[in-house]
Design a binder for these strands. Structure first.
Length: 204
DNA sequence: ATACCGATGGACT
DNA sequence: GTCCATCGGTATA
């Protein structure tokens, strides 16, 4: 009954496929208390990586269970944070049940909390949370938060205003080679924090 | 608005 | 060695 907006999502609500979770996370709020200041915002773009049969996933069958992707094999609702291109962190929400490696990459937030702190971390006052690596820098999320459960501080995933189905756009995922055309990227159509070039829904 | 390019490090084959 | 679930700068329009 404590279903007021802004409560942490229940751990069981993550026990769904990553594609469903990605849609469901749109409109939810990602909040970081790292460093003592609240930073974050509303999720407006997310990508699903749906399991061993997904060749673009870090947990693709050809890769198997490794040290890096181990968090994906853990319980839903925990964080999978990985380092890419020698300089950036990316934040994922693990989906499904233990042993079922699925995750949702958070690609953009509509930032509305701790703007000044985020701007200081980023060294600029714009482009704070559009992009998976940018939002990690703004929220001070790094590898130390790997496997963190997202229903407790210092990083929280809170319920938000439900997003109307017709506002949700779908497209192929970004920055991958394999399975480019799989419709697993979800975003709020026309939202300013979703790049215009990439805000066009896939034509099926 | 798009396009190219370089940075930089770890996971994996 | 090779490949990145990337970004910021610069150039061009």
């Amino acid at each position: 009954m404590a279903s007021s907006l802004g409560d942490p999502l229940d751990p069981t609500s993550y026990e769904v496929g990553a594609d469903e979770l990605a849609r469901r996370l749109l409109g939810c709020r990602l909040i970081s208390l790292v460093g003592g200041t609240s930073t974050g915002g509303r999720i407006v773009e997310a990508e699903a990586y749906v399991g061993p049969h997904d060749p673009a996933s870090h947990a693709a069958a050809r890769v198997g269970h490794t040290v890096r992707n181990a968090p994906m094999f853990g319980p839903g609702g925990t964080a999978y944070v990985y380092f890419v291109y020698g300089m950036h962190w990316c934040f994922n929400v693990v989906a499904g049940r233990p042993g079922d490696p699925q995750a949702v990459l958070i690609r953009a937030l509509e930032s509305d909390l701790g703007i000044e702190t985020m701007a200081a971390r980023r060294g600029r006052s714009h482009d704070l949370t559009n992009g998976p690596a940018r939002l990690c820098e703004s929220l001070a999320i790094d590898g130390s938060l790997n496997e963190h459960p997202l229903w407790m501080p210092p990083v929280l995933l809170l319920g938000g205003e439900p997003v109307p189905e017709e506002r949700i756009g779908v497209s192929g995922r970004i920055g991958i080679r394999e399975a480019r055309e799989w419709p697993l990227r979800f975003f709020l159509t026309g939202h300013p924090d979703v790049s215009k070039a990439r805000s066009t829904a896939l034509q099926l």
